[in-house]
Design a binder for these strands. Structure first.
Lengths: 203, 203, 203, 203
DNA sequence: GATGAATGAGGGTTCATTCAT
DNA sequence: TATGAATGAACCCTCATTCAT
């Protein structure tokens, strides 16, 4: 029970941290602000997170978890290899996941990872999983020898789209991002792969 | 001469700032650190830059200028439209320009732009110029209707490659980046465009 | 109790601020000096006062409160309209209230009010209350049409006496101040008003 | 010649200092601001004034000189003892001399005098001269035994009026100040002293 | 005489972190 | 578990002052 309560609080704080990151950016995300947003005391933050880095890390893990959940949901609806690949891609652009604020938070986190070992490790894990998902999704859709390269190409485009969303929110949106990536994928598919069933993103 | 003296110091400080950004990241790039790296007094920083933002901005402009200079140099050697497009792309990956540290600095700057109007404007100008260069370089190489889309596609890949370089320095290098982008471009070229003259990066 | 603890510290700091203002003037009243005088850490000052202005304001409110308390005490001893007017006047000159250092502090504060909206508001309230007290005290002692003017005249003399105390501490004291003001009042009283019972200030 | 030039520059700087004091207050009156207002180089300030205090002092002496000049001008028009006394008083309230900004500057200067020996000395001289002028002007108008006291009373009112002008610019003006002081004087005049020749301020 | 580069100290403020309760 | 008082370091910035030119 005790432990449970702690976990609930931790979760609350992680969520408050993520919201704060989105709203005021990395620099202004302080213990005081996070705790006040969570409606908890300032001191409590340090009961659950020994360090500010830990707190931020929890928030970013939460964001990552949401992408994973989105992916699971999208995969559940997919009924062909092609659609499963789309799911892997589109999980990164679902509403609530792809947006100016959250991509900003990711960029800040990435920038910070340069000098923060823990952050770097977390990001590494997340990116590795994304690329693994892409490779898996590509199997059978592109020639075996191309899987690695195409997975990398897609991941570059996803990252680029996130970065551009953060830096140029008014000039770039989810639809453009998906169109670019799907066009890229289309050019790499092995001959004879059918298009996904009426993908709303590829109009 | 007198007048120039000030500019010289400004330049020195901008360079010191850029080096500091590369080494310790945005957060730790303080007036004290920059000045001590430049071998100057702390107060002097504020003599030349009214604000920390101004200082950072000068550093990033410096980095941007270097890319432009690289581009000019590469264009001077290019002797065909295809090679000129390569120049536009490869200017972003020249040694001294594309590397873990400098891409970190860019990421930091980009992240900060979220809450700093001036930074955002600077980035906007830089990115717009890059995309304009790409469109220009693509003219005649891809069908007119594709220019816009392909330019965007390339820019996404460039950004993605920069981001990945920052986040996964050991697993990704300049050659992979260029190969990815050139493959992408190759798939979009209008029929009959000759390959560039044996660039080692484009195998 | 818990809650009060904060207030106690605030009070301590306000008192330390007032003492510091008296001793070294406005310019030299810094967070560091105040906190060291209070025997507390520098950071704590900003824990209780979001801003230096807030801190100074608290100090000046404290000084004002002391005058009010003095007034209440003096009024309790007054047994005639004439004596009550004296109380209003003399509250401004009680020992511990009227002295070189504290008048300096007031002058500093007043000077600063020129460029500090909050300070200006605080002073306005304080002065308005003083004039209101004077008008009230004068009712029945001077012809109704003169109340306003005499109240203003007295307030000018009080301010002038404070200013002179600050600027010429050795050449002017409480007794001279009171004598001047009482003489002024005496010349304006309606005929037939009795003198105050052996006014201690007019020896 | 050289010396002359220096004096001219000094004067320019003193004037610029006074203007700066009036405009931005004591705290914000810095060497940089003064020099830029004077259209001169920053370093020059310290050629003519070894210290910031010296610079401020020069400005305040300038302001004092202006009051003296005003007094001379008013005395030239006075044709009776009563009018000469008025001149002494009204010199302190002439346009360009009595106003929110300049009284603020005086208050700041006075506040600073608490901890600045030089400032204190300057103020002392100025105030002593004012009181001497008042005593001189009162001779023959009030009983000899009252001269000292009435001079002090007037000076208190003048100071109080300046202070109030600084602190409550909208609620108090030159006319009210003069009326108050003249009423006070009127109540102290020896019997038989004629009123001054139709001064509009003395209704 | 005149300039403005250069310095160093200090100011206000923010914040991660610790700790007594 | 939970609070918020308390600390100290660091940051950005301002400024009086000095000095080489």
């Amino acid at each position: 029970m005790r432990e449970r309560l702690g976990s609930v609080r931790r979760q609350e704080l992680a969520e408050a941290t993520l919201l704060t990151l989105e709203e005021v950016g990395f620099r202004a995300t302080t213990g005081a602000r996070v705790s006040s947003r969570a409606g908890l005391s300032h001191g409590l933050v340090h009961h659950y997170f020994k360090t500010k880095s830990e707190m931020i890390e929890a928030a970013i893990r939460l964001a990552s978890t949401r992408i994973s959940q989105e992916l699971v949901a999208l995969l559940a609806e997919a009924s062909s290899p092609r659609e499963r690949l789309c799911a892997v891609i589109e999980a990164n652009f679902a509403p609530g996941i792809y947006g100016t604020r959250i991509t900003h938070a990711w960029m800040s986190f990435g920038a910070e990872a340069a000098t923060n070992e823990r952050f770097a490790r977390v990001l590494h894990v997340i990116y590795r999983r994304m690329r693994s998902n892409l490779r898996h999704g590509l199997r059978g859709l592109v020639p075996a020898d191309d899987v690695e390269a195409v997975a990398t190409g897609i991941s570059l485009m996803i990252d680029g789209a996130w970065m551009r969303c953060a830096l140029d929110p008014d000039g770039f949106d989810r639809d453009q991002a998906l169109k670019q990536i799907h066009d890229y994928v289309a050019g790499r598919l092995a001959p004879g792969v059918p298009a996904p069933r009426g993908d709303p993103a590829i109009r």
